[in-house]
Computed example of a mutant assay.
Amino acid sequence: MITGAGRGLGLEIARVALASDEHVALAARRPEYLPEDVRHHPNALPVRLDVTDRTRISAAVAEVIERFGSVDVLVNNAGRGLLGALEEITDAEARALFDVNVFGLINTTRAVLPSMRAAGKGKLVHIGSRSGFEGEPGVSIYSASKFAVAGISEALAAELAPFGIQSMVVEPGVFRTDFLDASSVQLPGSRIADYDDTPAHVTLDWAEEANHKQLGDPVKGAAFIYRVASGDKLPLHLPVGQDALDRRSAMTERIERETAPWREASAATAHTDSG
Rank of each mutant, 00 (worst) to 15 (best):
E136H: 01
R67P: 11
S145A: 11
Q166E: 05
D21S: 11
A222T: 08
G221L: 01
V149A: 15
L82K: 07
G189D: 07
H212T: 01
F163G: 09
A200K: 02
R130H: 02
H237C: 00
L9I: 11
E256R: 11
D53C: 14
R191K: 13
N43T: 13
K233H: 03
A59M: 04
Y33C: 08
S58E: 14
T108P: 13
A244T: 04
A144N: 07
V174N: 04
E154N: 13
L245P: 03
H23M: 09
I65C: 08
G81E: 00
V61N: 09
P114L: 06
R29V: 09
V64R: 02
G8N: 12
V240E: 05
E171F: 04
I2F: 11
E136M: 12
L245E: 02
V149T: 01
G69R: 06
P35C: 00
S249Y: 03
M168V: 07
T52N: 07
L74N: 05
A157R: 15
L34G: 12
G69N: 11
R95M: 14
Y142G: 04
S58T: 14
G241I: 02
E264G: 05
G138I: 01
V149E: 10
A62C: 13
V228N: 10
G164R: 12
H212P: 00
L97W: 05
R67Q: 15
N211C: 05
D37C: 07
S140P: 05
V185W: 02
S143A: 15
A161T: 01
V169F: 11
G189C: 03
V38S: 01
G138W: 11
A267C: 06
A148K: 13
S140V: 02
H212Y: 15
P218Q: 12
A14P: 12
D178L: 01
A59S: 12
E159F: 14
H23R: 15
P239M: 09
E256H: 08
F175P: 00
R176F: 12
A27H: 11
F179H: 02
G135P: 12
E171R: 09
T269R: 05
A222K: 02
